[in-house]
Design a protein around this nucleic acid. Structure first.
Length: 580
RNA sequence: GCACCGGUAGCUCAGUUGGAUAGAGCAGCGGACUUCUAAUCCGCAGGUCGCAGGUUCGAACCCUGCCCGGUGCGCCA
């Protein structure tokens, strides 16, 4: 597709030109006209509110300015082809109605484009996305789902906008917990349990060892010694550690497969182990390293961020050091424009700290912390030690089980294998959508019913709309084998059709907005509105029984709706089965 | 104490950074399947956008203060 602008951007350019024509030399250089979608279709399709803002600068009444813009745009040789009518309303709003034929043309162009009209704003740019990042030797639980699902959606969105994306699963595989785990493992691991459910057993060992360390000082001492041995490369401990990592990865991979999540890189904290002393050297050379209470820190008091500890009193490094080393490594190896970190809100301060340190060091990379609200249970926060965590595996099982019940009752004719496939797509989709359809920053109180909503604004609603269209298309192909859709123009005759066509043409704006603001819910909202508009349309007009000509046009339009739904759901990591 | 986030319909939440009469879903009430998938659609009802000031043509959105909830604030990640 040659034209890589959204509809709003195109209209903005026309207004910008008209402004300079109507008021030569009077428009400030940095002023950019903006045309946005209307909230209410009674006010047209798009609107420009600049006349009010310019009123002071130009010392003219807003309506006068709006008039001048409209008059310029209505000159016969100047009228944009995409606009069918212009109208001034209220204090000086300019309302645009788009031309139906032009929308139809735009739809054809979108259909021809591999990216469905989405401007490739990320071309030539690299972004590293750091997400999911579970801890080794602990099972993934519902607290991990947001980072995984939101991170994965951002991953897919960025790729679709042309970015070169490197997704990296920054595993917690080198913390101080390994001293306790190794010691615990030696004393009370149950080999049978380990075989049956490795991570669960490792976690049990960890919790027991942790408890013991609380009561028994010498136990804690021994754990510290095991940790030091590990860090110094002791063969036996290293072998145990490798075993723990491998066992954990095996279980993580099962989850990732079910969630259809893939990483380009899986580099845990241990990957950067050897770089840690170098981080200190570099900080020292930059004059940023100071000693404080026996620890080495970077003083960020001036930024009101306290101090950032990079070496503990005992000489060990901590997460800030590792995170710095990770940035250096990524910048050196991949030269990213941006690194995205998708974690919960509790780490905001930590990220602001080490982002500031990177800035002081002159790392030329844009660091973004995409944080999301904490997930909690109705009775309060959950924690491993309280034993009230819901394991991700259990959650996924339950989602599929609930979906299967519905599929069996509403599609009893489907073969069982297909019922299972559909249930998987619907169940997992519902789960993902529950997270992706809301503002990531809102706090989430987990309930089974909410996480797995199957009606209303939910993934199954979108999947249902998509499957319905596919079903109509199949019936059409069977009943009218001679119809060729390729020659047909998508109709935009009825209001419903024009609205639907316009909505499809706005897909790029939705994708860009979601990507730019790191807000997958912008895309989810868009898809929901699209599906809603389609459902209304579906209810109101006949497809297969409509007259020749109209029929093909309608089929062409709804096929585009189906394709848009499928692509959009795909960007959220949600499947769109042909039948549900 | 300081910092960040949240407070919008009975419940769960949107509201793309200042635009027109604040929107959905669920729950409630009333309608629509002999017809392309009723996991659907149409309609009704439901609001002091936490409170009080301020900024301006215009504020749920920006500023100030306060109330309530969450989270964080040196050697965990």
């Amino acid at each position: 597709m040659k034209n890589t602008k959204t509809l709003g951007e195109e209209l903005s350019l026309y207004v910008q030109a008209a402004l300079h024509d109507a008021f030569p030399e009077m428009i400030p250089n940095d002023f950019e006209a903006t045309v946005v979608k209307t909230a209410d279709s009674r006010n047209g399709d798009y609107q420009c509110n600049d006349a009010m803002a310019l009123s002071k600068i130009l010392r003219k009444a807003p309506r006068e300015i709006a008039n001048a813009i409209v008059e310029t745009l209505e000159k016969p040789d100047r009228k944009p082809e995409m606009v069918s009518s212009l109208e001034i309303a209220g204090p000086g709003f300019i309302n645009f109605r788009l031309n139906s034929e032009w929308i139809a043309d735009r739809l054809l162009a979108i259909e021809d484009d591999a990216f469905r009209g989405v401007p490739q704003v990320g071309a030539e740019k690299t972004v590293v996305i750091d997400y999911s990042s579970p801890n080794v030797a602990k099972p993934m639980h519902i607290g991990h789902i947001r980072s995984t699902v939101i991170g994965n959606a951002l991953d897919r969105l960025h790729r679709f906008c042309g970015f070169r994306v490197l997704s990296d699963n920054h595993l917690g595989d080198w913390g101080t917990q390994f001293g306790l785990i190794i010691l615990g493992y030696r004393h009370f691991v149950d080999q049978k349990a380990l075989e049956a459910s490795p991570v669960q057993e490792l976690e049990r060992v960890y919790v027991e060892s942790y408890q013991k360390s609380k009561e028994d000082e010498s136990w804690l001492d021994q754990a510290r010694k095991e940790l030091v041995k590990l860090q110094q490369g002791d063969e036996e401990n290293l072998a145990l550690w490798k075993k723990f990592v491998a066992l954990s990865m095996g279980e993580f991979d099962k989850i990732y497969e079910r969630l259809d999540v893939r990483f380009d890189l899986t580099r845990g904290e241990s990957f950067y182990n050897e770089d840690l002393p170098g981080v200190l050297t570099r900080l020292d050379e930059a004059g940023l390293l100071v000693e404080s209470d026996g620890a080495m820190v970077v003083d960020l008091e001036a930024e009101k961020l306290g101090v950032c500890i990079v070496r503990k009193t005992d000489g060990g490094f901590n997460y800030a050091t590792t995170d710095l080393a990770t940035v250096f490594s990524r910048v050196r190896e991949f030269e990213p424009e941006t690194i995205l970190y998708v974690t919960d809100e509790r780490q905001q301060r930590h990220f602001r700290q080490f982002f500031t340190v990177c800035e002081k060091l002159g790392e030329g990379v844009n660091l973004e912390h995409v944080w999301f609200g904490l997930m909690r249970l109705p009775e309060g926060t959950f924690s491993t030690r309280q034993g009230n965590v819901i394991k991700l595996e259990v959650l996924l099982d339950e989602a599929e089980r609930r979906a299967l019940e519905i599929v069996q009752s509403s599609s009893p004719d489907l073969p069982e294998a297909q019922q299972r496939d559909v249930a998987r797509a619907v169940g997992i989709g519902a789960l993902k959508y529950a997270d992706l359809s809301q503002n990531p920053q809102s706090l989430v109180t987990f309930t089974w019913d909410k996480a797995m909503a199957l009606d209303g604004n939910s993934a199954p609603y979108l999947q249902y709309a998509h499957a319905r269209i596919r079903s109509v298309l199949d019936k059409h192909a069977a009943q009218f084998p001679d119809d060729t859709l390729e020659g047909a123009i998508p109709v935009c005759t009825l209001d419903l059709e024009k609205g639907l066509g316009l909505k499809v043409a706005q897909f790029p704006e939705a994708v860009l907005g979601a990507t730019k603001h790191y807000r997958p819910n912008y895309l989810a909202d868009y898809l929901y509105e699209l599906a809603q508009q389609y459902s209304t349309y579906h209810q109101s007009v006949p497809f297969l029984k409509s007259e020749d000509g109209v029929r093909e046009s309608r089929m062409r339009l709804i096929r585009m709706v189906a394709d848009t739904l499928k692509t959009g759901l795909g960007l959220l990591g949600i499947e769109a089965p042909e039948r549900i």
